[in-house]
């Protein structure tokens, strides 16, 4: 899934997978902090993935 999204032009680093048990609260915080930092570092103005109003004639 990650490979395919990246293959079609989504930057690496936008999709993350992690396995966190409900007992691992610190791991959860660490992972989420890391993900937010990484995604924020990507071009924030890059809105091409987000559809607002449909672009039609």
């Amino acid at each position: 899934m990650k490979n395919m999204l990246e293959h079609t032009g989504i930057e690496p680093g936008r999709l993350h997978f992690s396995w966190i048990s409900s007992a691992e609260s610190t791991k959860f915080v660490d992972v989420v902090t890391k993900i937010t930092d990484e995604v924020k570092a990507l071009d924030p103005a890059n809105k091409k993935y987000v559809k607002t109003e449909p672009k039609v004639d």
């Binding site: 990246e6 293959h7 079609t8 032009g9 989504i10 930057e11 690496p12 091409k48």
Partner: peptide
């Protein structure tokens, strides 16, 4: 596929 794999993210996006 190999050809597309060697492109940058933007190039890939535009290709598709």
């Amino acid at each position: 596929v190999t050809k597309v794999e060697s492109m940058s993210a933007d190039e890939k996006w535009n290709y598709f």
